[in-house]
């Protein structure tokens, strides 16, 4: 199974292969490789049963636009220098229609101001940077700008999304989860640095 992955760094835990998938997780492997998050969580079936719906709810379809969600996920992942998540969500960002300059700005390769000018998105990105990159409470002016642009339920969902992404960033980075070899090839053909050297370092 690991042969499907890019091996610049190898995972620090075994990724469960389909034939070793616990009974409760077999359906997740039925259509092929479920990806390293699921393949690692399958080490602990009861955790997988809880984590997957949680992550699916937060990262998947919801009341928020896909665009806002990818701004939050990719920016947070870049701030956390999570190579696995940045690579995975650069690909998602391409697929959902973010421009190259927007993607490079989110990844820290361009100033955000060069790619994002809409008041709502600027407020969101300042909120993301403060939540994902800061400690303690968020400055009042950043919070006011953000909550002034988004309804409470959106504030809740976006902030949970940033928090869940932080959790996944640290998990994937610590365990050195590998991206798929196909994804790395595609990103490199598109001209993206898949090693993230120097970004936010």
């Amino acid at each position: 199974m690991q042969d499907r992955y890019h091996h610049e760094m190898s995972s620090r835990v075994s990724l469960i292969a389909a034939e070793q998938a616990p009974v409760s997780a077999r359906h997740l492997f039925a259509d092929g490789d479920p990806g390293p998050l699921v393949a690692s969580w399958a080490q602990v079936p009861e955790l997988l049963d809880t984590a997957l719906p949680f992550v699916g709810m937060i990262l998947g379809a919801s009341s928020l636009s896909v665009r806002y969600k990818e701004l939050a996920i990719l920016r947070t992942s870049a701030l956390m220098q999570c190579r696995f998540c940045v690579n995975a969500h650069t690909e998602v960002a391409v697929d959902v229609g973010l421009s190259e300059s927007e993607i490079r700005a989110l990844r820290g390769e361009l100033p955000l101001a060069e790619a994002f000018t809409a008041t709502t998105e600027v407020a969101l990105l300042r909120w993301i940077d403060a939540v994902a990159g800061g400690r303690g409470s968020v400055a009042q002016d950043i919070a006011d700008a953000f909550t002034g642009q988004f309804a409470d339920f959106e504030v809740v969902e976006l902030t949970m999304l940033i928090g869940a992404t932080l959790m996944l960033n640290r998990y994937a980075s610590a365990l050195q989860l590998p991206n798929g070899a196909d994804s790395i090839d595609r990103l490199q053909r598109l001209g993206y640095d898949t090693g993230l050297l120097g970004v936010f370092a």
Binding site: E19, Q20, A21, P22, V23, S24, V44, P45, E46, L47
Partner: peptide
């Protein structure tokens, strides 16, 4: 150790693996 018939890593409280 084979994991294909693993029910849970949690064994205590016993009710968790039993229910699973």
């Amino acid at each position: 150790v084979d994991t294909d018939l693993l029910v849970s890593r949690t064994v205590d409280p016993l009710s968790l693996p039993v229910q699973r």
